[in-house]
Write a protein that binds this DNA or RNA. Structure first.
Lengths: 160, 160
DNA sequence: CATACTTATATAACATGTAATATAAATGGA
DNA sequence: TCCATTTATATTACATGTTATATAAGTATG
């Protein structure tokens, strides 16, 4: 076994390390959703959830709400419209803006996810890091060790 | 201002959020390095640092040490060889393995970075989150607020 | 009111990760 | 020893973020 230098370097490589943990969490989350029959990419759900929570939003507002750049939001919105989960229409007063809202199927998907999928993911992540405390680097180490010992999939309450 | 839903959703979107913070840290780190005249991408330094710390490594060992997949390591090693920072040679006993080591210029770059760049980055990140404590989500919020208030670049001790 | 600025979205080029698979070398058992 | 399996690296296709820039619509000023 080779030493994990990104862990050893501490604050110097914190960005790399947080990105790496985030990607691992997203990948595990994706597997949980696949098992539960959720038909989208994990990265696409924040768009549905944001509109479900805040109501119809423009592309720029979605980018802000999700914390990515506008071109990223434009692309994912286009994918979700293509998949029939979102609808977008020109704003009546300002032809530059596009108002993005949930389609009927999008609303159905969100309702199912809220009932069957999101609570389980929340619990699994809480199982991993809900009780953590102390310095940041220690918590990150605990998360990495915890994921290695038992990935998120095995922390999900079984579907009966 | 639109609500930051990734923050609001807590554990449900933790992966997205950690990835987002990691990317921001990397981007800020990149800017610091650019200002300090370090000529590589932030994501390439872990390769140099790993070999500096552990000695010559194979591609697979580098991937393990840095925590990425082997194809990612193969690509970055190829870039750094192309840039003249790394050298790779076939292992004498096993023609499949490539032993990757620092070139003369790579060693010079690491020496400079260790003296002038890495300590400053470490300090800047420590300034952001060295004193954090408590639950993970609170610490992440503090990091996001801290970065928004004063990016890493402005936490670097000025070069005299 | 025409022209210059600003704003919202789209597009292009690129960075950096992944998974799946190809290729070549080493290894082990009939 | 030969062939099947395993292992190490390379390649391909793709996901998802970025920055820079184009385009089109709104706004404001001479």
């Amino acid at each position: 076994m080779v030493e994990d230098v990104v862990r050893s370097f501490g604050f110097l490589t914190l960005g790399t390390r947080m990105k790496r943990i985030g990607e691992k969490l997203q990948a595990d989350t994706q597997r949980i959703m696949d098992e539960l029959g959720a038909p989208l990419q994990a990265s696409q759900y924040p768009f549905l959830a944001a509109i479900d929570r805040l109501g119809p939003l423009t592309v720029g507002e979605l980018a802000d709400a999700i914390g990515i750049t506008q071109p990223g939001a434009t692309r994912t919105v286009a994918q979700l419209v293509e998949l029939g989960m979102l609808e977008s229409e020109q704003a009546p007063d300002d032809q530059r803006r596009r108002i993005v809202s949930l389609s009927k199927e999008g609303r159905r998907l969100v309702a199912n996810a809220k009932r069957d999928v999101w609570p389980r993911i929340r619990e699994a992540v809480a199982d991993l890091c809900g009780d953590l405390d102390g310095p940041l680097l220690d918590q990150l180490a605990a998360m990495e060790d915890g994921l290695a010992a038992r990935p998120l999939q095995r922390r999900v309450v079984k579907v009966t």
